[in-house]
Design a protein around this nucleic acid. Structure first.
Lengths: 322, 322
DNA sequence: CTGTTAGCGCCTTCAA
DNA sequence: TTGAAGGCGCTAACAG
């Protein structure tokens, strides 16, 4: 490259970065050569210099197949791209072991920072000397920014709505308690019951379904009880889908509450009480928090660990659309 | 690091890569030091050496908000991860200019190869000296592997199904013809009409909707015609959703065919003729094709440009589920 | 305005 | 078995 332009590598470097201190003539020489070669400076070599960043951020999610996480990724990507940064996308499948490996690998690849949906509760492996922002789940044992959904509040409000409709036997379908959102949403569910003076019936609680098929089976289970619930609250979109399928299969009456909005919720002809929130915004916000750290300078020190709660709203979808 | 272990950088390098020619003693010294420091070799510096790869592949899609592309990303990530590679995820918003920039940037970041859903038809900018696999759309003016959906065949078969149901006035809703899939699916639609001896009525064709809202308006438009279609074929999931909303809004009778399956298609209480295919597999296959190139050696030369067609199937969802 | 030197972290090659 | 030298592509700092 420098050879083609017949100048030193330094002149190439300067010209290509639009630095001053290069004659018009040299600059054009370089630009012409670059054009004919399709030459672009090696970003990786560039970032090798001390103090340089790679412009890459790692994104670690637990399950890309879940629309929630693809929206999150979308939000992160949009903010990153707007700041000239790229996103390294990885998937843990909710496997802590895998998460450890991935996180170390990303650090070894010199990402400037990471956004992580952590799979477990020990977060020591996230202390890597680079900024980390947690998404959807809070930090344990480390200091880090995080962006959460109002899991507790949303579940409580939707459950309260079901109670207000007169339901007293309400089933719960959700993630294992080991998943933060599952635990919080169950707490919210319980809180609403308690506030209404309704006792929780443990037989109506199913907390192990990770996919729609399992949720469908669990719902059928509930419907088979002697005193089946008249309503159920599903703590996430997988479970909501399962409930809806069970209703269709059996033709049984069952009021449905659910966490996570989904596209055709208004078109199912089934009344639905849905906890909605902006998943894109969750990703965008996480990215912004991370960028705060990346752009921090001695004068503008990185802020202390922040916790943002993305608000939820409860939507009532009627049996008849709109 | 080398200091802590009190050995030379070379011994560190060797020990950490499990190379032979290191004494047990030295090896343990190094491993211990690495553990206490949480040290991992800088992958980026490593890849700077001549002939080394970065282990990164670029993924360039047009619209991450569309579930089709997030499934594609999921498929790519799964194969990449299984081979120890990472995915750099980017979004072009169907903007050719942006695609040019992104593609050059990825190359400058030294990705080993890229999987691209190209926005336009001039693909010269994809010749960057690194392997490129196109997804969902074929190459123009360059040689490259690609993985396509059977757009033509799927649209034809679904349309034929509508015709077999007795429909003669069938509307078409789709992408602009400038998008390959839009053009192909329209071709398939026309082919089916022709085979049935039905003339295409241009007034029933709307090819500019990029989102569900626009598709809904277009459908309302069609329904307002003097001789409205009795069925419509929507060439992608955005348009199908729009049609369904229009049906709900107006309560009008309208048979629906659509390209792209979606989760609750069976639960809408509306008969639906859907062209389905495996979007994950499209991503996985693209990744495999790319890996073929990346693992190619002088003895196993990279295969010539290949074109894989992902098959489609037509599913009839009834008005009553299951 | 331009070029030389040096070094980022790593590893191949060669020498001890 | 170990280490020193040199260079991957780039650029800050320092000549010229």
């Amino acid at each position: 490259m420098a050879a083609l332009a017949k100048v030193s590598p330094m002149s190439v470097s300067r010209a290509l970065r639009n630095q001053e201190g290069v004659s018009q003539e040299t600059r054009e020489l370089v630009l012409a050569a670059a054009r004919t070669l399709g030459y672009r400076p090696n970003e990786i070599a560039r970032s090798l210099r001390p103090g340089q960043k790679t412009g890459m951020i790692g994104l670690v999610v637990t399950n890309l197949a879940n629309p929630f996480y693809s929206r999150l990724a979308l939000g992160v990507e949009s903010i990153a791209a707007a700041h000239g940064m790229r996103v390294l996308l990885t998937n843990t499948n909710e496997d802590e072991e895998r998460e450890r490996d991935i996180v170390r690998d990303l650090a070894a690849r010199q990402v400037d920072g990471m956004i992580v949906v952590p799979a477990g509760f020990g977060h020591g492996h996230l202390e890597l000397g680079i900024p980390v922002v947690l998404a959807a789940r809070p930090p344990y044992g480390i200091e880090a920014d995080c962006v959460l959904v109002d899991d507790f509040g949303g579940a409580r409000e939707a459950t309260a709505q079901l109670l207000a409709q007169g339901h007293r036997r309400i089933g719960f379908l959700g993630n294992p308690p080991a998943v933060y959102t599952g635990a919080e949403r169950f707490r919210g569910f319980c809180a609403a019951l308690q506030e209404a003076g309704v006792d929780l019936d443990e037989r109506h609680v199913r907390r192990a379904q990770q996919d729609a098929a399992a949720a469908e089976r669990a719902t059928l289970d509930l419907l088979d009880l002697d005193e089946p619930p008249t309503a159920v609250f599903a703590a996430n979109n997988r479970n909501t889908i399962g409930v809806l399928r069970a209703i269709r299969t059996t033709g049984r009456q069952l009021a449905v509450g659910g966490f996570d909005d989904f596209e055709l919720a208004d078109m199912l002809g089934v009344p639905l009480t849905i906890v909605a929130y902006d998943a894109d915004e969750l990703g965008r916000h996480a990215a912004r928090l991370l960028l705060d750290h990346l752009t921090a300078t001695p004068d503008t020190p990185p802020p202390a660990a922040r916790r943002t709660i993305i608000p939820t709203s409860v939507i009532e979808y009627g049996a008849t659309p709109r």
